[in-house]
Amino acid sequence: MTTSTPIITPFTHDSTAMDVIQGVDLGGRRAIVTGGSSGIGVETARALASAGAQVTLAVRNTDAGQRVADDITATTGNDRILVAPLDLADQDSVADFVANWDGPVHILVDNAGIMAAPLSRTSQGWEMQFATNHLGHFALATGLRPALAAADGARIVSVSSAAHLRSPVVFEDIQYDRRAYEPWQAYGQSKTANVLFAVEATRRWADDGIVANSLMPGAIRTNLQRYVSDEELDRLRAGNAAAWKTPEQGAATSVLVAASPLLDGVGGRYFEDSQEAGPAKPGDRRGVAEYALDPEAAERLWEVSTQLLKG
């Protein structure tokens, strides 16, 4: 666990992305938001655009992405909103996105994901949630490393979840080849991977001026829950009634990590409700698990991920 002084901000559970971005100038900056055509991705992109950034929505459905881009331009007056195809479960798609990118990336928001999906696998045999939520973003970030380094102070935003408390990365059987598949456990493993990625990226890329932090956006009803039944959602709501957020509130912590001057030079940390989170306590769905910030696990995951991508 980190022993650094915790980051404290004036923002709260109820703050919105627009609250967090107020007074921040992103003119001349270029941002990428994966999954930028729905849910908190839209509001993250809108807030960054409102501060003057050029924002690329990296999305599977480019028609939906263009509709969102037009809406963001209409609401912010920023016409530098671009749309590019990206399917994180398809490594060829990730490679094409990287190959087509030109120039620096100042902000990379790894926002897209799938939650509690039934068991399915990529063409490589990788479990789909791990492949999409972690490996796709890992390939994207490592592919864009030269562009991030060129920004001289780039930030990576790794959107995790309180679900990381459900499971560490089980290195002995990441892909569920031998153990019984459980959708929420698999989702939790992938969200732990998102935290570990931020820890190791910050360590490895410090000389490039790149920092990465992870976060829990909060409980928000979005398309992310398309695999979650209404009964399960009702149960989650009943146990967490006060914690549910609007998409505008859910995007606040992403925007804090992406753009707040309060986090200049800060990396390898986990945030929730626009504050740095403390250690998780047994039975509580708040805070960050010790295994998710473990530097040895972070290094091991990086090496495993690199080997998987090599095939």
Rank of each mutant, 00 (worst) to 15 (best):
F11P: 14
H13Y: 06
S15R: 06
A17E: 14
D19M: 04
V24F: 09
R29C: 09
R30K: 13
R30V: 07
I32G: 08
G35C: 03
S37I: 07
S37T: 11
V42N: 04
T44N: 05
R46W: 01
S50H: 07
S50W: 06
G52M: 03
T56K: 07
V59E: 03
R60V: 02
N61Y: 10
G65E: 01
R67D: 07
V68W: 07
A69W: 01
D70N: 13
A74Y: 14
N78F: 15
D79F: 08
R80F: 08
L82Q: 14
A84Y: 04
D87A: 13
A89F: 09
Q91T: 08
V94P: 06
A95Q: 06
D96H: 12
V98R: 10
V98A: 07
G113Q: 06
A117M: 04
A117V: 14
S123P: 00
Q124M: 09
G125H: 15
M128I: 10
T132Q: 07
N133L: 07
H137W: 03
L144T: 12
L148G: 07
A149G: 12
A149P: 06
S161T: 11
S161F: 11
H164P: 15
L165D: 01
V169F: 04
E172D: 12
Q175N: 15
W184N: 14
A186L: 09
Y187S: 03
K191L: 09
V199E: 03
A201G: 10
T202R: 05
R203P: 00
D208K: 10
G209I: 08
A219R: 09
I220P: 15
T222Q: 02
N223T: 14
N223D: 13
Q225C: 00
Y227F: 11
S229G: 10
L233R: 12
D234T: 08
L236I: 11
R237Q: 13
G239R: 15
N240W: 03
A243M: 10
W244S: 07
W244I: 00
K245N: 01
K245T: 06
K245M: 13
E248S: 15
V255A: 04
V255G: 07
A258M: 12
A258W: 13
A259Y: 04
L262C: 13
L262Q: 09
V266Q: 03
G267L: 06
G267K: 11
F271G: 08
G278Q: 11
G278P: 00
G283T: 05
A289D: 06
E290L: 09
Y291L: 05
D294E: 08
R300G: 10
V304R: 08
T306P: 00
Q307F: 05
